[in-house]
Design a protein around this nucleic acid. Sequence first.
DNA 1: AACCCAGTTGAGTAATACGCAACAGAATCA
DNA 2: TGATTCTGTTGCGTATTACTCAACTGGGTT
Lengths: 253, 253
Amino acid sequence: MSDSTIQSVDRALTVLRLLARYGELGVTDIARKLKVHKSTAFRLVTTLESHDLVEQHSDRGKYRLGVGVLQLAGATTAKLDLVQRSRPVSQRLAEVVGETVNITVLAGQEALYVDQVAGSAALQLHNWVGQRIPLHATSNGKVLLASVSGVRFDELTSGVLKRFTDKTITSRQELRVQVERVRQNGFAIAVDELEVGLTAIAAPISGADGVVVGSISASGPGFRITRAHLPDVAKHVVASAQEISRRLGWHGH
Amino acid sequence: MSDSTIQSVDRALTVLRLLARYGELGVTDIARKLKVHKSTAFRLVTTLESHDLVEQHSDRGKYRLGVGVLQLAGATTAKLDLVQRSRPVSQRLAEVVGETVNITVLAGQEALYVDQVAGSAALQLHNWVGQRIPLHATSNGKVLLASVSGVRFDELTSGVLKRFTDKTITSRQELRVQVERVRQNGFAIAVDELEVGLTAIAAPISGADGVVVGSISASGPGFRITRAHLPDVAKHVVASAQEISRRLGWHGH
DNA sequence: AACCCAGTTGAGTAATACGCAACAGAATCA
DNA sequence: TGATTCTGTTGCGTATTACTCAACTGGGTT
């Protein structure tokens, strides 16, 4: 306490995170998880509801996140300086390599997608923006892991490394080796590690002080990004990452 | 007062909306707009910051929305039942007509994009999800307007009807006529009204009780969606809207 | 029909969040 | 360069505020 933070607001925001995690919860569930009285939980969600941040599925029903969140997200995407400054570079990269480009940052224990520009591929099935993906199974994640210290690495990989495909790295030792290679190469590759048939290449973006603030990647089907094409794509991704870093004020090597 | 809503939480959420509107604000600006003391405003943003919902650009700098919002949005998209149930239908529609498909709902005085599936077009420049677009200049907007009562129509169109192109409807009278036609046809068209070269067709989605809850549209360049193709596309859009309505529990006509 | 458990509402009290005033540092001005 | 006036930030006392408690309401289930 006395962290100059407001208790009730903190609780309300915790409710949002709970709903993000569990999908939908009743007033009683929330009260139990927050260790407060039912009526307190009720007033919290009522206030959130008045701003459309949560909605109840039916009268006297469970609560879930509402459209107000999407409204805020629209404004956020437009205003986040990383997104704002990287957008033109991302677009050019998507155009040049003809693949989908993503920007991610480290959020909690995962990689958070903050922007996406779709390439020339046929049908774009999914919009990843706002999604979180485990660090150990993506090129972006490996880049982000390569940017942190040893102890932080241990923290971020403290959980079980979930397996998605045969190629997913599930050994912390193996991950450490790969991440070291990423540091040397300046970019990361992930082939079939999150999804079979999906290849991705990522490079780190540095802020004005040289600290890595995010990661940019190009990803597409393995039959387009072949072993032969890979070095060429990597070169473009790295160049884009450096260009964005420059725009953020980084003038290192 | 005594709306069973918590004052401090309400203020904190208002801060988020202010930041969404103005992009970035200082503690003093926020305090002035909220009519509270600086220290109160400071504690509000500090609490929001502890949840990554806002971030300050630099120490002792202005505040803006943060990545936590995007994190919540990711969960919201996945959980909003409208998105969840419409996604498969949207994908099929995008595949069949080969154009970008959007789902919108009425939020405040505007249309809010809650989901998007990109068609087979070349380079997708923009992701509209979370964006809000004026009701009078889009096919989705006209569908949503057609679903409300006369008085609500007047409220929603009370502001000035902003002109985007030569074709934008800026007369409330003309808009009323068009909306009436939408009711009769069961779908809305917008050609060059928001952007020159952009054609869109939208149809209403009904919830379990028959009330219109949203709108689905297909949109693409005018040279692909020609006058000849239009009826065919419209048929698919209307069919998709009905399919989604059915999935939401609507068993009307 | 009786029960149980959900969400909702009213009131009193004590904890809490508010306003005040003083501080620290940047930017502006002289 | 120095004085002034912003900015964001912090400690503290008080009264407002938000919490707990208990009773209510209505749907589902037994």
